[in-house]
Nucleic acid binder design. Structure first.
Lengths: 332, 332
DNA sequence: CTGAAAGCGCTTACAG
DNA sequence: CTGAAAGCGCTTACAG
């Protein structure tokens, strides 16, 4: 713990070379004699010097910070999704010398993000979900901030990465249909989320090929409240629904509740399926059949993409990651 | 979207004053004529100038970044606690011109935190939980980084803020005892977490006053796995336990499972109590009696404390926040 | 291969 | 009340 931190100037003086030389030894840029470089590096090692990244940033017009924009809405904040994402992002950022700075946006309020950008605190950003009308995305585009979106968007200019929710939902639905289910319901959240639409498409895809299928299906979107779920479940039960697919674990929790309250047993009387396989449904009995996504991978890949963009490399516009269908006790 | 960002120099030149003057007008420090100040401010307003915080930081040896250290352990990451904390922290930091930079620590691996500190990326830090052997805490102390700990610690030098887990657990236990429960069990996680010890103390406090009480109580600590919980529950059932208190919602979820599997009804046959009242137990039926903490407040208060420390103000060493006991259907 | 000097965009004694 | 100058700790043409 020195009084004042060691600077490049101190080292130069101590070693009788110029600051330029020290800088070059550290950065590896520019020609420099092997001996001098070694001397500098050894000294640095010995004295535990570490450069002031802020000063470096000022000189290079970089910050070595990445902005992670997180939704701050009340329900959303409870989902483990974003923390897992963060782990992935944080890990690769860190390994590449970057730090992660967070900007929470609530109800379209993007002041935190704006501050980070106008204060020049970040070199780029990662969006952790996509909306139909996406204020953060529009802002970043308008201000020419490099960014990648976790989630999908129709805007083909945007670098985006997502799990293949459409295929996932198709495959899941397919396997339900293969098992002979003939009365099926889908419950989903806000249509503002692109992911809701993609899942709906996948759901429909599953029926598209089956001309012979003569069952019935129902879709309920923009559901976000347990009372509403309860009403839907009540209605579905009178219609003898065989399986209820929920688009997220919160909704599925509501469904399970509603069923439990009505003394309906899963999967005997009604089968239940969800997405995400998160802790929200962990420990439920029977275990819930679900899609499983590797959320941390979503984070790492997104961060790698962004870093490549910052290095001016070309990157793929759209990356689609896989999924895993986990059949469990909540389906027969 | 200008080509190059406006600088203080541009403004000075444009207005025919010195950079010093512009700087003073902006910062409000130093004497300056009312007219000149207004001219500068108006110009800034009109051109949407915003200062380069990084440069300002370099000159003042500040970063205007706060480090938030988060545990990255697998189970922990699923708890909504940290995200709620983050909301509080982020909101007040932002309102005071600071940004939040995250450092994840996993299994005592504090490299991310070390990087943030040695790279001089943060002015101070907030720990989001406390351990008996707390590597991040020791590191921050050793490097004289100002920080506040969310959670408790015996180290009286540390600025700390916590909910009153001890009183909370005492009050909860008291009310159970008042209802005549005579066979009680407490299940908790790792004793490495200070909070585990505090709750245990509160639990014991409740019995301390009751000399006449002739029931039995059992305590199981360092439980962190559902199979273990299952074994404990099995044992407790043979002993006719009346109420099981779990120290966190994950454990309580395991307990509920185990009971469900054994066809034991709550609260009729066994009563169940938990802490945190988080989304992990949301939607459970019957609703689980629980302590409720205002986690976001924990974040905002912690951040306010840290900012005050950075302003060299004196702050209280220890802040204790309240709690709320929510009696619900899982107890009689 | 190496160095002197200017520059990144601010702040802040010091002098007037 | 205002400004010239040095400084924060780096990088990077440019010259040798």
């Amino acid at each position: 713990m020195e009084e004042r931190n060691l600077t490049i100037g101190d080292i130069a003086q101590e070693l009788g070379v110029s600051k330029t030389t020290v800088s070059r030894a550290i950065s590896g840029k520019g020609r420099i004699g092997e001996q001098t470089r070694k001397r500098v590096l050894d000294y640095i090692e010995e004295r535990h010097y570490s450069p002031n990244v802020v000063a470096k940033g000022l000189a290079q017009n970089k910050t070595f910070n990445l902005g992670m924009v997180l939704p701050g809405d009340y329900h959303i904040v409870e989902l483990p999704f974003f923390q897992k994402c963060m782990m992935g992002i944080s890990r690769v950022a860190s390994s590449r010398g970057y730090d992660v700075l967070i900007s929470m946006v609530t109800a379209g309020q993007i002041t935190q993000l704006e501050r980070a950008v106008t204060n020049r605190k970040i070199d780029g950003a990662i969006l952790t979900r996509t909306l139909a009308e996406d204020a953060p995305m529009q802002y970043l585009k308008a201000n020419a901030v490099p960014f990648v979106a976790i989630g999908s968007t129709d805007d083909t200019q945007v670098i985006q990465i997502d799990n293949d929710h459409r295929s996932a939902c198709r495959e899941l639905t397919d396997s339900l249909l293969d098992r002979g289910i003939r009365k099926l319901a889908l419950i989903g959240g806000s249509e503002d989320y692109i992911v809701t639409k993609n899942r709906l498409r996948g759901f429909e895809d599953a029926f598209a090929g089956r001309i012979a299928w003569d069952g019935t299906r129902q879709v309920f979107l923009n559901v976000d409240d347990s009372r509403e779920v309860d009403r839907i479940v009540e209605k579905l039960l009178t219609e003898k629904v065989e399986c209820i697919v929920s688009m997220d674990d919160y909704l599925c929790g509501c469904v399970l509740n509603s069923l439990q309250q009505r003394q309906i047993t899963v999967p005997k009387q009604v089968q239940v399926v969800s997405f995400y396989d998160s802790s929200m449904l962990a420990n439920r009995l029977p275990a819930v059949t679900s899609i499983r996504f590797d959320v941390e991978e979503l984070g790492t890949k997104a961060c790698e993409l962004l870093l490549r963009m910052l290095d001016e490399e070309e990157v793929q516009k759209r990356t689609l990651l896989g999924y895993e269908v986990c059949m469990r006790g909540s389906t027969k």
